[in-house]
Amino acid sequence: MLKLEDICLRPARNDERDHLWHFIYVQNEWKAHDAPYFPLEHQSRFQFRRHLFKRLKEAQTAMVIDYNGEAIGYLSCYWEDQSTRWLEVGITLFTSQYWGKKLGRKALTLWITHLFERYDVARIGLTTWSGNPRMMKCAEALGMQEEGRIRSVRFFEGKYYDSLRYGVLREEWQAQSKDDNTLRCVS
């Protein structure tokens, strides 16, 4: 378990399986901002239990975001290219009642710190799109640099958007962690 103020990253509990499934596949307000140009591949409760929920329980490549005792979202990591140690992160906060309160920033702070401690990688990246200004602001507030912008490649609701790649190097992350007590994890 990783904790920063009122945010905790932890493994999923068995009694949350239906709650998590519901907010990912049924009441999925988050999807309007998280790559809505890609259709959400619905999973049955059985498929969810065998795949994403299993990852959330194992807490190696995905963790639940707990805010005051409630599962409000999750974080994940994946290899863009494992042979070159190219690791990316993702975040989902389920509903708008938790957006704009810096909860995602705190969760990503914990997650990125944890991943740098766990993996021998030089950089951790995050990909978003120009239709998600909150995610862009969050990445920049974390000290991530905009490393790439592919213009007008995300077509959604009759409009083109840019794809954005952000990244932070290990030494940049460690330098800002020394200067900012809020970047320290408590296990």
Rank of each mutant, 00 (worst) to 15 (best):
L115T: 01
V64F: 04
F23Y: 14
H19A: 02
R134W: 02
I7E: 00
F23D: 08
Y25A: 07
R118T: 15
Q82R: 14
Q27Y: 13
L40H: 11
K31E: 13
G73Q: 04
K31F: 12
E29Y: 05
P39Y: 07
Q176E: 05
F23G: 00
V168S: 07
Q145H: 10
M136H: 03
I72F: 07
H42Q: 15
I124H: 05
K159N: 10
W86P: 05
L9A: 02
Q47N: 04
E147G: 06
R134D: 12
L87A: 08
Y160D: 09
V89L: 04
R50L: 11
N132G: 06
L115F: 07
E157S: 02
D120I: 01
L40D: 13
G69M: 04
K31Q: 13
C138V: 11
S76D: 11
A141Q: 09
I72Q: 01
L40G: 13
L56T: 09
F23L: 10
A139R: 05
D18A: 12
I65F: 03
D6N: 14
I24N: 14
E146Q: 14
A59S: 10
F48M: 04
E80S: 07
Y78W: 08
R55H: 14
K106R: 08
E157K: 13
Y119I: 03
F156D: 09
H33K: 08
S187F: 07
Y25S: 10
S187W: 10
L115C: 02
Y161S: 09
Y37E: 15
A32T: 03
V89H: 01
G125Y: 01
W173Y: 08
I124Q: 11
L108N: 07
A62N: 13
Y37T: 13
K31N: 12
W111K: 00
E171N: 14
E41N: 10
V64G: 06
I24E: 14
T92P: 08
K101I: 05
H22T: 10
L93S: 05
K101S: 09
V89N: 00
I7R: 01
L9S: 07
Q27T: 12
D6F: 08
C8E: 15
A122V: 03
Y166P: 02
R165H: 15
A59Y: 03
R151S: 13
L56Q: 09
G148F: 05
V168R: 06
G131L: 04
K102W: 02
L52A: 04
P11I: 01
E41P: 01
F38P: 00
